[in-house]
Design a protein around this nucleic acid. Structure first.
Lengths: 337, 337
DNA sequence: AGTTGGCGTGTAAACATTTTCATGCAGAGG
DNA sequence: CCTCTGCATGAAAATGTTTACACGCCAACT
């Protein structure tokens, strides 16, 4: 069943059928009805590929996700896909992993499958050097690129993000005002977002007039950023005599590791140790006590990503960088004040 | 840049260029090299839509996911996408939600976007009645449909699943052998998989000669299948005087709710209350004590789904139903024996 | 020497749309 | 009555591939 069969049966030309298909107003009501009824009768669906060839688009957005199993990114995935679909776009999922080569290969699909735009999910995609980000610029030369919680100033590249510096600064400042003085910062990544968070931690201490102690910075490589590893790591630090009365974590999983550490070491939370996570994920409410965390505003970020992408695709001028401010969500792992 | 430009510049016909593109062996080494170098020079990429039109496929699989934010499905998503991509297929993500109409609309995209196959992620998709599953049969008339952890006997529909009955039976039997007699079954869904799990619970009791007590079946509607709701629900049951020494849960989140209940009620786990979850998700190791759970074999299931799909697409005969048996993973919420 | 077969290559049709331009017709205005 | 305008419609070109078929050439048989 193609447009010719329909046109023949309806006694019109294929141009008219096409017009009906595309809701072109230059068709008489009667003709439109006749054509539609023939389509209905054969439950005709236009060929997507031919349409793509003619229009040079199949209304597809590529969602590049370093790890769909990560709860933060999974939530973003669900949100983005749903919003794009209700706006008439479908999403191609590409789980790239975090290696440069993998990400580059993922971006390649933009060209190979001729997508209309790309969403790079997470600041994993943005590297330190300009050469490292060459692949983003190349992609942006083909179609608009929108970054989730990251920014990279370059033509046709847009960033929608949470002000991680402010959020982390606020959280750490809260801890300081609650009387904590030795705040361990446990972080799992030094990508764009990771750096912004660290800066926030440092700013908070500086503003409070506290010293920046090197030994209170605890880096955990991403592969070891799981609960048992973090727990073990903190236990080891304690063994070595390090003392701290609060933990600021770069994500919720790491924070849970800190809670586990406290439990293992017989340290009471939040009395002896306060803990704040990041992302306000489902995990928080599963903890005992429930985990205080920073809400990274994922939902408004996703909404804005879709808005930005569609705006650019419609030729509108869009801001290249949109920042939301995070909120501290207090629960059981921070003391009452 | 199209195939004509390349052919002109390389001094060959478009057929030859196409042959080079498709690794057709009927091209002399010299010609192939010349064509390739011209392509390279212009960094030519064949038009995906035209190719789709010619070949009647764009090597795309539709992944229909009721909820990408669900950790079980998110893990499956990552696994499936990666496997399909390494096998040359790309994935279209569609987050359908669990409503019948939404799912039906998702399946519609199979036709509209001309995908090569559909993976329905979760037994949510399979309904009780044959009329309810009409949309699956219609989809299967267009392209192969593979169900994740569900089965529906119909032509061109394939199911890859975990033997939930056996797994649940084993887990409950373990609890019985550990001396527990009043085992509360908390479940959040009565779809295909949910029913199989419940059957396993009942079988275990029957085989052990224990009575099936209606009051020990605790159904929690899906919308309330989160930690605080389950916790509240169990507290209410306790208020009403119900006593139980173990909880078998239909997923890990529900199990965490039971742990929270125990904590709130001052009940010690696993001494006074044993808890077993389902799916062996990341959550397990975040609990205190760590959650014992049933490994639903998601990874081998995903691998097999891809295998089945590709097999069918290559015209091979594939089994319509493949079952893996689950494993009980014992951690801290079950007593030592 | 003539036939056969295989291989490299080219021609042209097929794939199913969209879109531009032309055409015919009806009604309005001079 | 003629012209002009606007609208419904159609013819044909354009989109960029794949592929069936034909052709010519050379080597290997008969």
């Amino acid at each position: 069943m193609n447009i010719y069969d329909i046109s023949r049966e309806a006694g019109v030309s294929i141009a008219t059928v096409s017009r009906v298909l595309n809701n072109n107003p230059h068709v008489s009501e009667e003709t439109r009805r006749r054509v539609l009824s023939v389509m209905e009768a054969h439950s005709y669906v236009p060929n997507a590929f031919a349409r793509g060839l003619g229009l040079n688009t199949m209304q597809t957005i590529g969602l590049l996700c370093p790890d769909a199993a990560d709860s933060y990114l999974a939530a973003a995935l669900a949100d983005l896909e749903h919003s794009f679909r209700t706006r008439g776009y479908n999403c191609q999922l590409v789980c790239t992993g975090r290696e440069h080569a993998e990400r580059e290969r993922g971006v390649e699909l933009l060209r190979l499958r001729h997508m209309d735009g790309l969403v790079l999910m997470g600041s994993t995609f943005v590297e330190e050097t300009d050469e490292g980000n060459a692949y983003i610029r190349e992609a942006a030369a083909q179609a608009p690129v929108v970054l989730l919680n990251a920014a990279y100033p370059s033509p046709n590249v847009y960033g929608v993000l949470c002000d991680d510096t402010q959020s982390t600064r606020d959280a750490v400042t809260w801890l300081i005002q609650a009387g904590r003085r030795r705040i361990l910062y446990v972080y799992h990544s030094m990508n764009d977002s990771g750096k912004r968070k660290l800066a926030g931690y440092q700013e908070a201490l500086r503003r409070a007039g506290l010293p920046l102690e090197e030994e209170l910075l605890c880096f955990v490589p991403r592969e070891e950023a799981d609960v048992p590893h973090v727990r073990g790591r903190l236990l080891a630090l304690r063994e070595k005599g390090l003392r701290f009365d609060a933990v600021m974590a770069s994500n919720d999983v790491v924070a849970v590791g800190a809670l586990k550490y406290a439990h293992a070491a017989g340290i009471s939370v939040p009395k002896e140790l306060a803990v704040i996570g990041y992302n306000d994920s489902d995990l928080c409410v599963c903890c005992e006590p429930e985990l205080s965390s920073v809400d990274g505003r994922l939902s408004p970020i996703c909404t804005q990503i879709v808005e930005t992408m569609l705006g650019v695709l419609q030729g509108r001028e869009m801001p290249q960088r949109i920042v939301f401010s995070g909120n501290l969500v207090l629960r059981g792992t921070t003391p009452a004040r």
